[in-house]
Design a protein around this nucleic acid. Structure first.
Lengths: 222, 222
DNA sequence: ACCTGAACACCGTTCAAGT
DNA sequence: ACCTGAACACCGTTCAAGT
Protein backbone atom coordinates (compact mmCIF):
# COMPACT_ATOMS: atom_id res chain seq x y z
CA UNK A 1 0.00 0.00 0.00
CA UNK A 2 1.57 3.33 -1.01
CA UNK A 3 2.18 5.93 1.65
CA UNK A 4 1.87 9.25 -0.14
CA UNK A 5 2.50 11.26 3.02
CA UNK A 6 5.48 9.26 4.23
CA UNK A 7 8.73 11.25 4.41
CA UNK A 8 10.54 10.95 1.14
CA UNK A 9 13.92 9.35 1.65
CA UNK A 10 16.72 9.23 -0.84
CA UNK A 11 16.01 5.56 -1.49
CA UNK A 12 14.32 4.67 -4.76
CA UNK A 13 12.97 6.87 -7.45
CA UNK A 14 10.37 9.56 -6.98
CA UNK A 15 6.83 8.49 -7.87
CA UNK A 16 5.56 9.74 -11.20
CA UNK A 17 1.90 8.95 -10.71
CA UNK A 18 -0.22 8.98 -7.58
CA UNK A 19 -3.23 7.02 -6.45
CA UNK A 20 -5.31 10.16 -6.88
CA UNK A 21 -4.18 10.53 -10.47
CA UNK A 22 -5.08 6.93 -11.17
CA UNK A 23 -8.58 7.39 -9.75
CA UNK A 24 -9.05 10.71 -11.55
CA UNK A 25 -8.02 9.17 -14.87
CA UNK A 26 -10.34 6.23 -14.28
CA UNK A 27 -13.15 8.69 -13.63
CA UNK A 28 -12.46 10.43 -16.93
CA UNK A 29 -12.66 7.16 -18.83
CA UNK A 30 -15.86 6.04 -17.10
CA UNK A 31 -17.53 9.41 -17.64
CA UNK A 32 -16.55 9.49 -21.28
CA UNK A 33 -16.97 5.89 -22.40
CA UNK A 34 -18.71 3.95 -19.63
CA UNK A 35 -17.46 1.47 -17.09
CA UNK A 36 -17.11 -1.31 -19.65
CA UNK A 37 -14.33 0.63 -21.31
CA UNK A 38 -12.36 0.97 -18.11
CA UNK A 39 -9.53 -1.54 -18.40
CA UNK A 40 -6.15 -1.47 -16.79
CA UNK A 41 -4.53 -1.15 -20.20
CA UNK A 42 -6.74 1.69 -21.31
CA UNK A 43 -6.20 3.41 -17.98
CA UNK A 44 -2.44 3.09 -18.31
CA UNK A 45 -2.64 4.62 -21.77
CA UNK A 46 -4.74 7.49 -20.44
CA UNK A 47 -2.09 8.21 -17.82
CA UNK A 48 0.77 7.66 -20.22
CA UNK A 49 2.19 4.73 -18.30
CA UNK A 50 2.09 0.94 -18.38
CA UNK A 51 -0.57 -1.39 -16.98
CA UNK A 52 1.77 -2.68 -14.32
CA UNK A 53 2.62 0.75 -12.94
CA UNK A 54 -1.01 0.96 -11.80
CA UNK A 55 -0.61 -2.01 -9.52
CA UNK A 56 1.75 0.05 -7.42
CA UNK A 57 -1.08 2.36 -6.49
CA UNK A 58 -4.06 0.05 -6.53
CA UNK A 59 -4.26 -3.53 -5.37
CA UNK A 60 -6.49 -4.75 -8.16
CA UNK A 61 -9.13 -3.62 -10.57
CA UNK A 62 -11.80 -4.39 -7.97
CA UNK A 63 -10.15 -2.07 -5.50
CA UNK A 64 -9.98 0.58 -8.18
CA UNK A 65 -13.75 0.33 -8.66
CA UNK A 66 -14.36 0.75 -4.94
CA UNK A 67 -12.06 3.78 -4.88
CA UNK A 68 -13.94 5.17 -7.84
CA UNK A 69 -17.22 4.79 -6.00
CA UNK A 70 -15.77 6.47 -2.90
CA UNK A 71 -14.53 9.31 -5.04
CA UNK A 72 -17.89 9.65 -6.73
CA UNK A 73 -19.79 9.61 -3.43
CA UNK A 74 -17.46 12.17 -1.87
CA UNK A 75 -17.99 14.53 -4.79
CA UNK A 76 -21.72 14.18 -5.37
CA UNK A 77 -23.38 13.10 -2.13
CA UNK A 78 -24.17 16.44 -0.56
CA UNK A 79 -26.09 16.53 2.66
CA UNK A 80 -29.58 17.93 2.13
CA UNK A 81 -31.70 19.91 4.56
CA UNK A 82 -33.58 17.26 6.47
CA UNK A 83 -37.11 17.81 7.78
CA UNK A 84 -37.79 17.58 11.50
CA UNK A 85 -40.48 14.95 11.18
CA UNK A 86 -38.62 11.62 11.51
CA UNK A 87 -40.63 9.62 9.00
CA UNK A 88 -40.05 12.28 6.37
CA UNK A 89 -36.40 12.47 7.36
CA UNK A 90 -36.01 8.80 6.45
CA UNK A 91 -37.62 9.43 3.07
CA UNK A 92 -35.51 12.46 2.22
CA UNK A 93 -32.20 10.92 3.31
CA UNK A 94 -32.93 7.74 1.34
CA UNK A 95 -34.03 9.68 -1.71
CA UNK A 96 -30.79 11.66 -1.64
CA UNK A 97 -28.72 8.48 -1.83
CA UNK A 98 -30.98 7.11 -4.50
CA UNK A 99 -30.73 10.22 -6.66
CA UNK A 100 -26.96 10.26 -6.48
CA UNK A 101 -26.73 6.60 -7.44
CA UNK A 102 -29.35 6.85 -10.17
CA UNK A 103 -27.26 9.49 -11.93
CA UNK A 104 -24.38 7.10 -12.00
CA UNK A 105 -25.43 3.96 -13.86
CA UNK A 106 -22.02 2.33 -13.94
CA UNK A 107 -22.32 1.98 -10.20
CA UNK A 108 -24.39 -1.16 -10.56
CA UNK A 109 -21.28 -3.26 -11.01
CA UNK A 110 -19.87 -2.09 -7.70
CA UNK A 111 -23.07 -1.31 -5.89
CA UNK A 112 -23.70 -4.77 -4.70
CA UNK A 113 -20.60 -4.74 -2.56
CA UNK A 114 -22.28 -4.77 0.82
CA UNK A 115 -24.76 -2.75 2.77
CA UNK A 116 -22.59 0.33 2.88
CA UNK A 117 -21.32 2.20 -0.09
CA UNK A 118 -18.65 4.44 1.23
CA UNK A 119 -17.80 6.52 4.26
CA UNK A 120 -19.48 9.47 2.59
CA UNK A 121 -22.78 7.61 2.76
CA UNK A 122 -22.56 6.86 6.46
CA UNK A 123 -24.11 10.15 7.45
CA UNK A 124 -27.19 9.21 5.43
CA UNK A 125 -27.40 5.79 7.03
CA UNK A 126 -27.16 7.53 10.41
CA UNK A 127 -30.11 9.77 9.53
CA UNK A 128 -32.22 6.84 8.34
CA UNK A 129 -31.55 4.77 11.45
CA UNK A 130 -32.12 7.81 13.65
CA UNK A 131 -35.42 8.58 11.95
CA UNK A 132 -36.64 5.01 12.35
CA UNK A 133 -35.66 5.02 16.04
CA UNK A 134 -37.43 8.33 16.53
CA UNK A 135 -40.57 6.76 15.05
CA UNK A 136 -40.48 4.20 17.81
CA UNK A 137 -38.72 1.23 16.26
CA UNK A 138 -36.32 -0.77 18.39
CA UNK A 139 -32.66 -0.71 17.33
CA UNK A 140 -33.15 -4.19 15.94
CA UNK A 141 -36.19 -3.16 13.91
CA UNK A 142 -34.40 -0.02 12.75
CA UNK A 143 -31.43 -1.94 11.35
CA UNK A 144 -33.72 -4.42 9.65
CA UNK A 145 -35.78 -1.56 8.34
CA UNK A 146 -32.70 0.12 6.93
CA UNK A 147 -31.78 -3.12 5.21
CA UNK A 148 -35.22 -3.41 3.63
CA UNK A 149 -34.92 0.17 2.41
CA UNK A 150 -31.51 -0.59 0.97
CA UNK A 151 -32.74 -3.73 -0.80
CA UNK A 152 -35.55 -1.76 -2.37
CA UNK A 153 -33.26 1.09 -3.39
CA UNK A 154 -30.48 -1.09 -4.75
CA UNK A 155 -33.01 -3.24 -6.60
CA UNK A 156 -34.65 -0.26 -8.22
CA UNK A 157 -31.33 1.02 -9.50
CA UNK A 158 -30.06 -2.34 -10.68
CA UNK A 159 -33.24 -3.27 -12.50
CA UNK A 160 -33.80 0.12 -14.07
CA UNK A 161 -30.27 0.84 -15.22
CA UNK A 162 -29.69 -2.65 -16.56
CA UNK A 163 -32.93 -2.49 -18.51
CA UNK A 164 -31.82 0.86 -19.95
CA UNK A 165 -28.44 -0.60 -20.85
CA UNK A 166 -30.05 -3.44 -22.81
CA UNK A 167 -32.36 -1.10 -24.66
CA UNK A 168 -29.46 0.70 -26.28
CA UNK A 169 -27.74 -2.56 -27.15
CA UNK A 170 -30.13 -3.77 -29.82
CA UNK A 171 -33.32 -2.70 -31.56
CA UNK A 172 -35.02 -6.09 -31.56
CA UNK A 173 -38.21 -6.39 -29.53
CA UNK A 174 -37.39 -7.00 -25.90
CA UNK A 175 -38.01 -10.31 -24.25
CA UNK A 176 -40.86 -8.66 -22.40
CA UNK A 177 -42.51 -7.50 -25.60
CA UNK A 178 -42.29 -10.97 -27.10
CA UNK A 179 -43.75 -12.54 -23.96
CA UNK A 180 -46.64 -10.10 -23.76
CA UNK A 181 -47.37 -10.62 -27.42
CA UNK A 182 -48.05 -14.30 -26.89
CA UNK A 183 -50.05 -14.21 -23.67
CA UNK A 184 -52.73 -16.84 -23.20
CA UNK A 185 -55.67 -14.76 -21.89
CA UNK A 186 -57.44 -17.75 -20.38
CA UNK A 187 -54.45 -18.73 -18.25
CA UNK A 188 -53.20 -15.24 -17.44
CA UNK A 189 -56.22 -12.93 -17.56
CA UNK A 190 -54.82 -10.21 -15.33
CA UNK A 191 -51.63 -9.85 -17.33
CA UNK A 192 -53.69 -9.82 -20.53
CA UNK A 193 -55.75 -7.04 -18.98
CA UNK A 194 -52.74 -4.79 -18.31
CA UNK A 195 -50.55 -5.95 -21.19
CA UNK A 196 -50.98 -2.92 -23.41
CA UNK A 197 -50.38 -0.49 -20.54
CA UNK A 198 -47.44 -2.41 -19.08
CA UNK A 199 -44.71 -0.60 -20.96
CA UNK A 200 -45.95 2.89 -20.12
CA UNK A 201 -46.81 1.99 -16.51
CA UNK A 202 -43.43 0.48 -15.80
CA UNK A 203 -41.69 3.40 -17.49
CA UNK A 204 -43.09 5.75 -14.85
CA UNK A 205 -40.77 6.63 -12.00
CA UNK A 206 -42.54 5.28 -8.94
CA UNK A 207 -39.48 4.96 -6.73
CA UNK A 208 -40.71 7.46 -4.16
CA UNK A 209 -44.21 5.98 -4.01
CA UNK A 210 -42.81 2.55 -3.34
CA UNK A 211 -40.38 3.93 -0.78
CA UNK A 212 -43.18 5.67 1.10
CA UNK A 213 -45.24 2.48 1.06
CA UNK A 214 -42.30 0.50 2.41
CA UNK A 215 -41.53 2.98 5.17
CA UNK A 216 -45.23 3.18 6.11
CA UNK A 217 -45.35 -0.58 6.29
CA UNK A 218 -42.17 -0.76 8.38
CA UNK A 219 -43.54 1.76 10.85
CA UNK A 220 -46.97 0.11 11.03
CA UNK A 221 -45.40 -3.20 12.01
CA UNK A 222 -43.85 -1.63 15.07
CA UNK B 1 -31.93 -19.83 -35.52
CA UNK B 2 -31.92 -23.65 -35.67
CA UNK B 3 -35.16 -25.44 -36.35
CA UNK B 4 -34.82 -28.76 -34.56
CA UNK B 5 -38.27 -29.93 -35.62
CA UNK B 6 -38.00 -28.92 -39.28
CA UNK B 7 -38.14 -31.84 -41.73
CA UNK B 8 -34.64 -33.08 -42.33
CA UNK B 9 -33.76 -32.78 -46.00
CA UNK B 10 -30.84 -34.37 -47.73
CA UNK B 11 -29.05 -31.03 -47.82
CA UNK B 12 -26.20 -30.49 -45.41
CA UNK B 13 -24.92 -32.71 -42.66
CA UNK B 14 -26.97 -33.94 -39.75
CA UNK B 15 -26.56 -31.90 -36.56
CA UNK B 16 -24.32 -33.42 -33.94
CA UNK B 17 -25.30 -31.22 -31.02
CA UNK B 18 -28.60 -29.57 -30.20
CA UNK B 19 -29.55 -26.38 -28.42
CA UNK B 20 -30.86 -28.51 -25.54
CA UNK B 21 -27.52 -30.25 -25.23
CA UNK B 22 -25.73 -26.91 -25.16
CA UNK B 23 -27.97 -25.61 -22.40
CA UNK B 24 -27.72 -28.84 -20.44
CA UNK B 25 -23.93 -28.79 -20.63
CA UNK B 26 -23.89 -25.15 -19.56
CA UNK B 27 -26.04 -26.09 -16.60
CA UNK B 28 -23.59 -28.80 -15.60
CA UNK B 29 -20.67 -26.35 -15.67
CA UNK B 30 -22.54 -23.69 -13.70
CA UNK B 31 -23.72 -26.17 -11.08
CA UNK B 32 -20.26 -27.62 -10.69
CA UNK B 33 -17.99 -24.58 -10.93
CA UNK B 34 -20.12 -21.44 -10.86
CA UNK B 35 -21.19 -19.03 -13.52
CA UNK B 36 -17.75 -17.41 -13.74
CA UNK B 37 -16.37 -20.64 -15.14
CA UNK B 38 -18.92 -20.81 -17.90
CA UNK B 39 -17.06 -19.74 -21.02
CA UNK B 40 -17.76 -20.63 -24.60
CA UNK B 41 -14.46 -22.45 -24.78
CA UNK B 42 -15.02 -24.45 -21.64
CA UNK B 43 -18.54 -25.25 -22.79
CA UNK B 44 -17.26 -26.49 -26.14
CA UNK B 45 -14.78 -28.72 -24.34
CA UNK B 46 -17.55 -30.09 -22.12
CA UNK B 47 -19.56 -31.01 -25.21
CA UNK B 48 -16.55 -32.28 -27.09
CA UNK B 49 -16.82 -29.70 -29.81
CA UNK B 50 -15.36 -26.34 -30.76
CA UNK B 51 -16.33 -22.89 -29.53
CA UNK B 52 -17.69 -21.90 -32.88
CA UNK B 53 -20.04 -24.86 -33.17
CA UNK B 54 -21.96 -23.36 -30.26
CA UNK B 55 -22.79 -20.26 -32.22
CA UNK B 56 -24.90 -22.39 -34.50
CA UNK B 57 -27.27 -23.13 -31.64
CA UNK B 58 -27.04 -19.95 -29.61
CA UNK B 59 -26.80 -16.39 -30.82
CA UNK B 60 -24.32 -15.22 -28.19
CA UNK B 61 -23.20 -15.89 -24.66
CA UNK B 62 -25.83 -13.48 -23.39
CA UNK B 63 -28.55 -15.47 -25.09
CA UNK B 64 -27.13 -18.61 -23.57
CA UNK B 65 -27.45 -17.12 -20.10
CA UNK B 66 -31.09 -16.22 -20.71
CA UNK B 67 -31.76 -19.75 -21.95
CA UNK B 68 -30.07 -21.08 -18.86
CA UNK B 69 -32.32 -19.00 -16.64
CA UNK B 70 -35.41 -20.15 -18.54
CA UNK B 71 -34.28 -23.73 -18.14
CA UNK B 72 -33.65 -23.23 -14.45
CA UNK B 73 -37.03 -21.56 -13.89
CA UNK B 74 -38.89 -24.26 -15.81
CA UNK B 75 -37.28 -26.95 -13.68
CA UNK B 76 -37.46 -25.41 -10.22
CA UNK B 77 -40.31 -22.92 -10.14
CA UNK B 78 -43.17 -25.14 -9.03
CA UNK B 79 -46.53 -23.59 -8.42
CA UNK B 80 -47.37 -23.66 -4.73
CA UNK B 81 -50.77 -23.94 -3.13
CA UNK B 82 -51.91 -20.36 -2.82
CA UNK B 83 -54.10 -19.15 0.04
CA UNK B 84 -57.53 -17.67 -0.70
CA UNK B 85 -56.85 -14.40 1.10
CA UNK B 86 -55.47 -12.08 -1.61
CA UNK B 87 -52.92 -10.24 0.51
CA UNK B 88 -51.42 -13.53 1.63
CA UNK B 89 -51.55 -14.80 -1.94
CA UNK B 90 -49.27 -11.95 -2.97
CA UNK B 91 -46.84 -12.83 -0.18
CA UNK B 92 -46.73 -16.55 -0.94
CA UNK B 93 -46.37 -16.13 -4.71
CA UNK B 94 -43.57 -13.60 -4.26
CA UNK B 95 -41.83 -15.73 -1.68
CA UNK B 96 -41.89 -18.69 -4.07
CA UNK B 97 -40.05 -16.71 -6.73
CA UNK B 98 -37.64 -15.39 -4.15
CA UNK B 99 -36.83 -18.84 -2.78
CA UNK B 100 -36.15 -20.25 -6.22
CA UNK B 101 -33.85 -17.37 -7.09
CA UNK B 102 -32.09 -17.35 -3.75
CA UNK B 103 -31.03 -20.97 -4.26
CA UNK B 104 -29.42 -19.98 -7.51
CA UNK B 105 -26.80 -17.32 -6.79
CA UNK B 106 -25.34 -17.18 -10.28
CA UNK B 107 -28.63 -15.73 -11.36
CA UNK B 108 -27.60 -12.28 -10.26
CA UNK B 109 -25.69 -11.70 -13.48
CA UNK B 110 -28.77 -12.37 -15.57
CA UNK B 111 -31.44 -11.35 -13.11
CA UNK B 112 -31.31 -7.73 -13.90
CA UNK B 113 -32.54 -8.29 -17.44
CA UNK B 114 -35.92 -6.70 -17.10
CA UNK B 115 -39.02 -7.00 -14.98
CA UNK B 116 -39.78 -10.51 -16.09
CA UNK B 117 -37.54 -13.48 -15.71
CA UNK B 118 -38.96 -16.10 -17.95
CA UNK B 119 -42.28 -17.42 -19.18
CA UNK B 120 -42.30 -19.88 -16.28
CA UNK B 121 -42.50 -16.95 -13.89
CA UNK B 122 -45.47 -15.34 -15.57
CA UNK B 123 -47.96 -17.39 -13.60
CA UNK B 124 -46.48 -15.94 -10.41
CA UNK B 125 -46.68 -12.41 -11.71
CA UNK B 126 -50.31 -13.10 -12.63
CA UNK B 127 -51.03 -14.22 -9.07
CA UNK B 128 -49.35 -11.16 -7.57
CA UNK B 129 -51.20 -8.71 -9.80
CA UNK B 130 -54.44 -10.58 -9.21
CA UNK B 131 -53.97 -10.48 -5.46
CA UNK B 132 -53.26 -6.76 -5.49
CA UNK B 133 -56.34 -6.11 -7.64
CA UNK B 134 -58.46 -8.24 -5.31
CA UNK B 135 -57.23 -6.08 -2.42
CA UNK B 136 -58.75 -3.08 -4.15
CA UNK B 137 -55.82 -1.55 -6.00
CA UNK B 138 -56.44 -0.11 -9.44
CA UNK B 139 -54.66 -1.84 -12.34
CA UNK B 140 -52.20 1.03 -12.39
CA UNK B 141 -51.48 0.71 -8.67
CA UNK B 142 -51.21 -3.06 -9.01
CA UNK B 143 -48.56 -2.86 -11.73
CA UNK B 144 -46.63 -0.27 -9.77
CA UNK B 145 -46.99 -2.39 -6.67
CA UNK B 146 -45.66 -5.42 -8.48
CA UNK B 147 -42.68 -3.36 -9.60
CA UNK B 148 -41.93 -2.26 -6.06
CA UNK B 149 -42.13 -5.87 -4.90
CA UNK B 150 -39.78 -6.89 -7.69
CA UNK B 151 -37.28 -4.13 -6.84
CA UNK B 152 -37.26 -5.24 -3.23
CA UNK B 153 -36.90 -8.91 -4.14
CA UNK B 154 -34.22 -8.40 -6.78
CA UNK B 155 -32.32 -6.06 -4.46
CA UNK B 156 -32.36 -8.53 -1.60
CA UNK B 157 -30.95 -11.27 -3.80
CA UNK B 158 -28.34 -9.10 -5.46
CA UNK B 159 -27.07 -7.59 -2.23
CA UNK B 160 -27.08 -10.80 -0.25
CA UNK B 161 -25.51 -13.10 -2.82
CA UNK B 162 -22.86 -10.60 -3.84
CA UNK B 163 -21.92 -10.05 -0.22
CA UNK B 164 -21.63 -13.82 0.20
CA UNK B 165 -19.51 -14.05 -2.93
CA UNK B 166 -17.04 -11.48 -1.58
CA UNK B 167 -16.79 -13.17 1.76
CA UNK B 168 -15.34 -16.30 0.24
CA UNK B 169 -12.96 -14.31 -1.93
CA UNK B 170 -10.66 -13.09 0.80
CA UNK B 171 -10.23 -13.27 4.55
CA UNK B 172 -9.32 -9.66 5.12
CA UNK B 173 -11.74 -7.62 7.23
CA UNK B 174 -14.59 -6.40 5.08
CA UNK B 175 -14.95 -2.79 4.15
CA UNK B 176 -17.90 -2.66 6.52
CA UNK B 177 -15.84 -3.92 9.44
CA UNK B 178 -13.14 -1.35 8.78
CA UNK B 179 -15.70 1.43 8.58
CA UNK B 180 -17.46 0.44 11.77
CA UNK B 181 -14.15 0.16 13.53
CA UNK B 182 -13.39 3.83 12.93
CA UNK B 183 -16.77 5.38 13.67
CA UNK B 184 -16.82 8.84 15.19
CA UNK B 185 -19.45 8.48 17.95
CA UNK B 186 -20.07 12.21 18.18
CA UNK B 187 -20.93 12.51 14.52
CA UNK B 188 -22.69 9.19 14.08
CA UNK B 189 -24.15 8.25 17.47
CA UNK B 190 -26.86 5.93 16.21
CA UNK B 191 -24.47 3.85 14.11
CA UNK B 192 -22.11 3.72 17.07
CA UNK B 193 -25.00 2.46 19.17
CA UNK B 194 -25.76 -0.48 16.85
CA UNK B 195 -22.23 -1.07 15.56
CA UNK B 196 -21.50 -4.20 17.54
CA UNK B 197 -24.84 -5.77 16.68
CA UNK B 198 -24.74 -4.76 13.01
CA UNK B 199 -23.12 -7.95 11.71
CA UNK B 200 -25.49 -10.31 13.49
CA UNK B 201 -28.57 -8.20 12.77
CA UNK B 202 -27.87 -7.95 9.08
CA UNK B 203 -27.07 -11.64 8.88
CA UNK B 204 -30.66 -12.47 9.89
CA UNK B 205 -32.98 -13.32 7.07
CA UNK B 206 -35.63 -10.63 7.22
CA UNK B 207 -36.77 -10.90 3.64
CA UNK B 208 -40.31 -11.94 4.54
CA UNK B 209 -40.69 -9.26 7.22
CA UNK B 210 -39.67 -6.57 4.78
CA UNK B 211 -41.94 -8.00 2.10
CA UNK B 212 -44.91 -7.97 4.45
CA UNK B 213 -44.16 -4.39 5.42
CA UNK B 214 -43.93 -3.37 1.78
CA UNK B 215 -47.19 -5.09 0.82
CA UNK B 216 -48.94 -3.60 3.87
CA UNK B 217 -47.72 -0.19 2.86
CA UNK B 218 -48.80 -0.65 -0.74
CA UNK B 219 -52.28 -1.69 0.33
CA UNK B 220 -52.60 1.10 2.88
CA UNK B 221 -51.88 3.72 0.22
CA UNK B 222 -54.91 2.62 -1.81
C1' DA C 1 -26.58 -27.17 -42.87
C1' DC C 2 -23.40 -27.96 -39.73
C1' DC C 3 -18.77 -27.98 -38.02
C1' DT C 4 -13.61 -26.75 -37.80
C1' DG C 5 -9.09 -24.03 -37.44
C1' DA C 6 -6.94 -20.17 -37.33
C1' DA C 7 -7.01 -15.66 -36.21
C1' DC C 8 -8.50 -10.97 -34.29
C1' DA C 9 -8.64 -8.01 -30.80
C1' DC C 10 -8.80 -8.01 -26.54
C1' DC C 11 -8.56 -9.10 -20.97
C1' DG C 12 -6.24 -8.98 -15.60
C1' DT C 13 -2.19 -10.19 -13.53
C1' DT C 14 2.64 -12.27 -12.47
C1' DC C 15 7.45 -12.17 -12.83
C1' DA C 16 12.09 -10.62 -13.52
C1' DA C 17 14.57 -6.97 -14.64
C1' DG C 18 15.82 -2.13 -14.92
C1' DT C 19 16.80 2.73 -12.69
C1' DA D 1 10.65 2.63 -4.35
C1' DC D 2 8.90 2.94 -8.50
C1' DC D 3 8.43 1.69 -13.27
C1' DT D 4 8.96 -1.29 -17.62
C1' DG D 5 8.64 -5.31 -21.04
C1' DA D 6 7.58 -9.49 -21.93
C1' DA D 7 4.85 -13.14 -21.02
C1' DC D 8 0.99 -16.18 -19.04
C1' DA D 9 -3.32 -17.79 -19.32
C1' DC D 10 -7.16 -16.53 -20.67
C1' DC D 11 -11.69 -14.13 -23.13
C1' DG D 12 -15.99 -13.63 -27.01
C1' DT D 13 -16.48 -13.53 -31.72
C1' DT D 14 -15.54 -13.23 -36.97
C1' DC D 15 -14.12 -15.25 -41.11
C1' DA D 16 -13.03 -18.58 -44.60
C1' DA D 17 -12.83 -23.05 -45.45
C1' DG D 18 -14.14 -27.89 -45.13
C1' DT D 19 -17.76 -31.94 -45.44
Amino acid sequence: MPQPSAPRTSLGRPPRISREEVVAAARRIVDADGVNRLTMRRLAAEIGSTPMALYHHVRSKDELLVLLLDDYAARTLHRPELPEEPRERVIVATDAIHSALADCPWIVDVLTADDLLSTSALWFVEQIIDGLLACGLTPRQAVHGYRAIWYYTAGEIVVRTTAARRRTDDDRPTYRERVFGELDPSELPRLEQVADRWASLTAEDTYLDGLRALVDGLLASR
